[in-house]
Computed example of a mutant assay.
Amino acid sequence: MTFIKTTEQSSKYEHLEKMSVTELLTNINNEDKTVPLAVEKALPQIETLVNQIVAKMKLGGRLFYIGAGTSGRLGVVDASECPPTFGVPFDLVVGIIAGGDKAIRKAVENAEDNATQAWIDLQEFNINENDVVIGIAASGTTPYVIGGLETCNKNNIITGSISCNAGSPLSQTAQFPIDVVVGPEFVTGSSRMKAGTAQKLVLNMISTATMIRLGKVKGNKMVDMQLSNSKLVDRGTKMIMGEIPVTYEEANQLLKEHGSVRKAVDFFNSQL
């Protein structure tokens, strides 16, 4: 199959500079509506990869995201949300961006073109066969990401990918590729738009489904979330009240004493 970068094809909209704000917003929104449908087509691929991640994590493995630019930033965001949301160690899900953490805020010149650096970056975390590495690249051609997965494959490390072009070099490199084909962007080539949205949706699915399968959610509640601000303490207190017959004050005290909704509820039930 011939590889075509649909993410780089010309927008189906012309003369954007002549559009009113209403027209701009309406057309962007219309394009955004197509993204979940593209993700839906990739659900079987996503499911296969999630099952691989869960199996490896049950053996003590970790999940790594590698990417450059917007793709790298999205990986870092998803990884950084896992500890506060699910109460897991900060190094269970790790986001690595080409050019290092400074590239989160400011582009690092030529960082994505270095095909050997990703493996060097991964080695800092003592990457091993129990881990899973997902390469993220809208184009599916980023050397940093492809090179990283190639070396992982040679070292018996499971690899996945998230790309927005069908049949990309990245998808052909990954053992478990995910292709979410969103088509041309509203602004030609601006893959931070639909492609970025698609990647974010897939990352949400991967991390959330994995954590639920690992027992980090009870019912539909984040019972292991970190209590890092007043809003979360209040949420946790009310979650406890929904599980056991206590007042707000009693639930709040239990939460403060035990540090999580799960531990507070378990303690209360153990006293019955």
Rank of each mutant, 00 (worst) to 15 (best):
A79V: 12
K194T: 09
V108A: 13
E150S: 09
A42Q: 05
A118H: 09
K263D: 15
I240H: 01
R62I: 11
G148R: 06
K194L: 07
V145Q: 02
L59F: 00
D131F: 04
M225C: 13
S20C: 12
A38H: 08
G242L: 01
A115R: 10
K231H: 10
V77P: 04
G147F: 07
M211Y: 05
P84S: 01
V187Y: 06
P169I: 00
V35T: 11
S71H: 07
G60I: 11
K33H: 12
S190I: 07
K56L: 05
D234E: 15
K256C: 03
V76Y: 01
V217Q: 06
L16W: 06
V35F: 07
G135L: 03
G160A: 09
K221F: 02
K263M: 05
V21I: 14
G236I: 05
S190N: 08
Q199P: 12
D32M: 08
I146T: 12
N155M: 10
E129K: 14
N128H: 09
Q253F: 01
V187M: 13
C152N: 09
M193H: 02
V94R: 03
V180K: 01
V223N: 04
N30G: 15
G135P: 07
P84I: 01
K5L: 10
G236E: 05
E129M: 09
M57S: 05
A138H: 03
A264V: 10
G147R: 05
G72D: 08
R235E: 10
V246A: 08
T188W: 02
K194Y: 03
V181A: 10
H258Q: 14
A137D: 08
